[in-house]
Write a protein that binds this DNA or RNA. Sequence first.
DNA 1: TGTACATCAGTGAACGCGCGTTCACTGATGTAC
DNA 2: TGTACATCAGTGAACGCGCGTTCACTGATGTAC
Lengths: 235, 235
Amino acid sequence: VIVKDAQLEWVRRPLQARSQQTLDRLLDAAEAIIEEKGLDGLTVGEVTRRAGSSVGAFYSRFADKEGLVRVVFERFTDQALATTEVVLDPARWQGVPVLDVLETMMMFMLNIVRERQGLVAALVARSALDPSLTALGERLHEHICMRMRALVIERGDSFAHEDPDAGMQIAVGMVLSFMESRAVYRTQRLPDERVASEVARLIVDYLGVTAAQDLPASSKKTNGRPQAPPSHAKE
Amino acid sequence: VIVKDAQLEWVRRPLQARSQQTLDRLLDAAEAIIEEKGLDGLTVGEVTRRAGSSVGAFYSRFADKEGLVRVVFERFTDQALATTEVVLDPARWQGVPVLDVLETMMMFMLNIVRERQGLVAALVARSALDPSLTALGERLHEHICMRMRALVIERGDSFAHEDPDAGMQIAVGMVLSFMESRAVYRTQRLPDERVASEVARLIVDYLGVTAAQDLPASSKKTNGRPQAPPSHAKE
DNA sequence: TGTACATCAGTGAACGCGCGTTCACTGATGTAC
DNA sequence: TGTACATCAGTGAACGCGCGTTCACTGATGTAC
């Protein structure tokens, strides 16, 4: 019997290579089904059928269906977090204007959200009713805030916003929720590239990020559009 | 038999006052249940029980359970749209700085979202799988864009953003999705008032809204914090 | 290296509960003459 | 004003399907000696 407790695991960890593979196949199958038909279309029967497994094997691994959903979501946010770690590494961005860094990051996020629309939408939907799931999103949120702050500071750039932490919370919160909404409402009136550059601009303007190394060469144009001076830049 | 067709109604409209009242009670009950337990907790049995009605009465009104959900959501967005109409009426805002108008509007939206967390979250969740529902959100989105543009123009203010329509689409999209996310993730690290003022500031900065009548009296302070000059304001 | 045993891993038929939907029926309201 | 009839509105027991979960069982892998 698998003990279900907030403190413990949602899945009994496999001990043999064989069962690890079975577990992976179950998770992949579940993710694919969620992507196609949403959480409502997810049945234990179809998961095991697609994974080439059986119901019994499923229940010797998971306490119940909820455990499966849980682990699928955890796996996804773990991946997202790890990738963020890499993308926002200051070492990658030596000498690149902040606006471009943000634009790249936006494109990156937009791609993830496009590839895994269904999963993101399902996670959002489930989070509304299951408060313990919101922790996953919050972890990502805080992580991005932290990384963004570190990135700007390590580059020697500065914020003009008088409360950068609060400002970043707002900005990151808006960006993340905007990404989620693009997963939910698939109609995309503006192309990803355009959205990425506009959102990057919006953040720079709002937080008033001033690039230290850009100050001398102020006539640099990054994307064919005159680069606006950051607001709040009074000093 | 109630014909289900995208072109036709989802509910057989009542002909007598008695059945209109029953219909209202059914919709109210359904909304309350969605608010409490989400769409998964919504059963025809409980709806009719709470409404003091019966299953048979329910099915003589709606083609099926989906029809009920549909009508509940339509009723909600209709209300939201009507209220937006009133709030964004330029006549209300003679001589008030744009920043304050936006801040008030944000507080207003935050209140709606707080009162009807469950319903908003359920609508978002369902929209992810049912494309025909996204039309409801889009209608609201476009309406707000239109009203905001009209508001700024009728007041004689101007945008510095070189493509105000696209900019407004982005800004309104971000604001709406941010509101939705506050409905979904109920943890609110920043108080509503703070969020409202920051978001208002973000929009003004990004779109570069310049208030015509504010130009002479530039030392005006609206909320105890020095009002930043709008970005992109080069002219 | 071989044998015995414990535990891990997997199988799929069967169970049973919940919930959407149907249906035969009763009562209320409107309308024609 | 009264009567007959059609339609609207409502009732709740019964049906049946889908799906989560259980369980008795077989096979695979590791370990002790």
